[in-house]
Write a protein that binds this DNA or RNA. Structure first.
Length: 799
DNA sequence: CGCACCACAATTTTT
DNA sequence: TTGTGGTGCG
């Protein structure tokens, strides 16, 4: 009912291949949900001319009514939920699908397979991976695991890690896997080409694959690759799954790589009811092997394919869309698509040129506070950056200003050493042959089995063609191991006991038993440092994680829990209920939306990144990222850049990002700069500046120039562009050097103050701290806040 | 074996 | 600026 004609068409076209080109904010998820709903209720009814024999005039009349019977009559072969497979890229997207389906269908919605590629493959593999030689409890190596594995291989083989950097090896291996080449196949290629580098890569790859397999482990790529292999080598398995899924939907199709493409083709190969949704302009994962060709050639490969374009945007203002369209128009490799909206134009795109990264961050914090004081919520704001390293200055500014924020990215919790340790124990309990993890924990906590002993034992294992754990279990048989033999035996006994325990007890009990037997926490407690106390907390938190996994999934296998951890990312527990500003990379922001978006670090060599300069393919990818970032915004976009910033401890200055210049000037507003510590000249203010006044100019006009010169005069200085031959004489006006922050003169504990965002309150405490003051204020409405005075001063007034 | 110290490198994005 | 890995000492 509430769908536009294009959306409705996409919902109704249930049969055969379907390509949906869905622009940002075009209601894609709504379409997916409704499409699934339609399939569940009406089967192919909406896409079929079929009229059952029994359908007489009365029945057809009834269908035109609104009765429940009408629905039943319109259905042609309705589909049970478990015959639908909906693949997304992130767990978050999958969860959203699931919960919206459940909201619509009740518990039945849970039976739809709404999963990521990785978790779908995991499920398929758990069932049949024995055919490939893995146990059904196989474990998953995450990126840091695979990195240590490669490092290990390089070391064991005396390979120079400068010439063959572990990271480069990993991405090379990932690339080989994406081409679905086995170690044998790749080494043939390397031999044939006689390329020494490739030969070495081939050797490393072979070893890498071997060790993973011996550890009964798969990396992320293996999950997909092995599923494809399973399908290709075992016709009955493929048939089973093809039969199982009547309808296959794949979201974010532009981000699929070759293996994922193959997977999609295979699993939908029976009925060809495959619906792929994507947007070539939002393809930002090429570095991970995604090939935009998958979506660009979908029509050619599927002759009877129908294509539907969703170009009406329901998210953003007209200005934001115009800006996004203008930027993406500079790309040549695209299907061509213009988003439009019937929303009003809205605010102009704000641009702020900051002095350095600190001021950049302070600007962001200030704008957020300003908005907050005008009734916006913190959760309406997102600060997006190109790379994670940029988050720290923003974080710092938000902290100082008492703005709650949440930062996404990485897997901070599960990457902590103590967490990895415990998880490694759990992995070893499942599979003692997992050497990588075994070596991580064998002497942790210290139990007198040193590096030398392990090395000796490893050599024996290799010589005898058995596993390290095996040798350790029988250490007393080897004279070389006579000294650590007892301790090794003790260790292996402990693991075996735990293994036995794990066979009869749920994961949370195993966890307790593990801590008890290993004394992991006990050792930390004895150390009694603050860091160790934090570690203990983390370990305890892990237990609640285990319990909630068991509750939520209804699964009580250790292998299941470990896999869920491996496939978990920080983004997943994003919840919009907390009133927090969101900090994340532009990549992570895909699929999300926020009323107000800040894009920071809009500078050449940052965004676009240095690697993209002079490489048009890379540059187009960066531009798509810019497109994604801009289209996250519903109401306002703030572009921020800094004239100078510290990179690797060095001050550098970059030109303004080309993406800023690609936004037509009439859509931009070079904004009023918040006047630094402008209270100095505010009448009635009780503060005094220590040194000079703030800016002489209120405006920061920006004319699309591209190069910064040096500033330094009072007031503002005009800088002529020197680096952009296309626009001779274009100039930018920048704020002059900013005055030193003020120091308080007469604010005291007990004073009544008014804060722009937090309202009125009382100064509770004022304590000197690093050349500044920590001011603690009890606000009448929002409770107590601790802020640094230098930063907060501009928002505080004495009353 | 554990710790402190030093040199050095490295910086993209993530399932 | 940060993190990592190696070395040498007690």
């Amino acid at each position: 009912m509430h769908l536009n004609p294009m959306q409705r068409e996409a919902v109704m076209a249930t049969e055969g291949p379907l390509l949906i080109l869905a622009g940002a904010g075009s209601g894609k998820t709504t379409v997916l949900i409704n499409r699934i709903y339609n399939i569940l209720m009406f089967g192919s009814g909406s896409d079929s001319d079929y009229v059952p024999e029994w359908a007489d005039g009365a029945a057809i009349d009834a269908m035109n009514g609104e009765s429940e019977d009408a629905a039943r009559l319109a259905a042609v072969n309705p589909c049970p939920p478990w015959q639908i497979l909906a693949i997304t890229f992130t767990n978050k997207a999958a969860d959203e699908l699931k919960s919206r389906l459940s909201a619509m269908l009740g518990p039945e919605g849970q039976d739809v397979w709404a999963l990521t590629f990785h978790s779908a493959c995991l499920r398929i593999l758990r069932r049949d991976c024995e055919k490939l030689g893995y146990t059904s409890d196989f474990s998953i190596y995450d990126t840091s695991d695979t990195l240590s594995l490669v490092k290990r291989i390089l070391k064991d083989n005396d390979i120079d890690d400068k010439k063959f950097s572990p990271k480069a090896m990993l991405s090379y291996i990932s690339n080989i896997k994406d081409r679905m080449l086995t170690p044998d196949q790749f080494s043939q290629i390397a031999d044939f080409e006689g390329d020494l580098y490739k030969k070495m890569v081939s050797k490393i790859y072979r070893e890498y694959a071997r060790r993973l397999f011996e550890a009964d482990a798969m990396d992320f790529d293996d999950l997909i690759l092995n599923t494809v292999r399973l399908f290709e080598e075992y016709g009955d398995v493929l048939e089973y799954w093809q039969h199982r899924f009547r309808y296959v939907l794949i979201d974010e199709y532009q981000d699929t790589n070759a293996m994922q493409f193959r997977f999609s083709e295979l699993i939908s190969g029976g009925r060809h009811n495959i619906c792929v949704v994507g947007d070539d302009d939002q393809s930002i994962y090429k570095f991970r092997g995604a090939t935009i060709e998958n979506i660009l050639t979908f029509e050619d490969r599927n002759p009877h394919c129908r294509t539907i374009r969703l170009e009406q945007n329901y998210r953003s203002t007209g200005t934001i869309l115009d800006a996004a369209n203008a930027v993406i128009r500079n790309n040549t490799e695209r299907k061509g698509k213009e988003l439009w909206t019937d929303h009003e134009k809205g605010d102009l795109i704000e641009l702020y040129v900051a002095e350095n990264e600190h001021e950049e961050a302070q600007y962001v914090a200030g704008q957020i506070l300003k908005g907050y004081s005008q009734g916006e919520n913190f959760r309406d704001y997102a600060v997006l950056y190109r790379k994670n390293a940029q988050s720290s200055s923003i974080e710092f500014a938000l902290k100082r200003n008492g703005i709650p924020y949440r930062i996404y990215g990485g897997m901070k919790f599960f990457e902590r050493a103590e967490i990895k340790d415990i998880l490694s124990y759990l992995c070893v309990i499942l599979s003692p042959n997992d050497n990588l993890r075994l070596e991580r924990i064998i002497n942790n906590p210290p139990r007198g089995i040193g590096a030398k002993s392990i090395e000796t034992a490893s050599e024996i294992a290799i010589k005898e063609g058995t596993y390290l754990f095996d040798v350790i279990s029988r250490a007393d048989l080897y004279p070389e191991l006579s000294r650590p033999a007892i301790r090794m035996r003790e260790f292996s006994n402990m693991i075996n006991e735990l293994k036995y325990f794990a066979q009869n007890n749920p994961p949370d009990a195993v966890f307790d038993e593990l801590l008890n037997k290993t004394g992991y926490v006990r050792v930390l407690e004895e150390k009694n440092t603050i860091e160790d106390a934090a570690r203990i907390e983390n370990v305890k938190e892990l237990k609640s994680g285990i319990i909630s996994y068991m509750e939520e999934s209804g699964d009580n296998t250790l292998a299941g829990y470990l896999a869920s951890v491996a496939l978990y990312t920080d983004l997943d527990n994003m919840d919009r209920d907390d009133d927090c500003v969101t900090l994340m990379t532009m990549h992570s922001s895909k699929g999300l939306e926020f009323p107000h978006v800040f894009l920071v670090g809009m500078e050449e060599t940052i965004f676009p990144g240095a690697q993209a300069l002079g490489d048009s393919t890379e540059m187009e990818e960066e531009r798509r990222l810019a497109y994604v970032a801009i289209t996250r915004a519903m109401k306002t976009v703030n572009l921020v850049c800094a004239m100078q910033r510290m990179i690797f401890g060095q001050t550098t200055s970059n030109r303004i990002s080309r993406f800023v210049e690609e936004i037509p000037e009439e859509l931009r507003h070079a904004n009023v700069i918040p006047r630094g510590y402008a209270f100095s000249d505010r009448a009635g203010s009780s503060y005094r500046m220590k040194s000079e006044s703030g800016f002489g100019a209120d405006y920061n006009q920006f004319h699309g120039g591209s190069s910064y010169g040096s500033s330094g005069q009072r007031g503002y200085s005009q800088i002529h562009s020197s680096g952009n031959p296309d626009r001779p004489g274009s100039s930018i006006v920048l704020p002059a050097k900013k005055a030193e922050p003020a120091v308080i003169s007469d604010i005291n504990e007990g004073d009544r103050i008014k804060h722009r965002a937090f309202g009125e309150g009382t100064v509770v405490k004022l304590s000197p701290m690093g050349g500044d003051y920590l001011i603690e204020m009890a606000f009448d409405k929002v409770g107590t806040k601790k802020l640094m005075l230098k930063a907060a001063a501009q928002y505080i007034e004495k009353i």
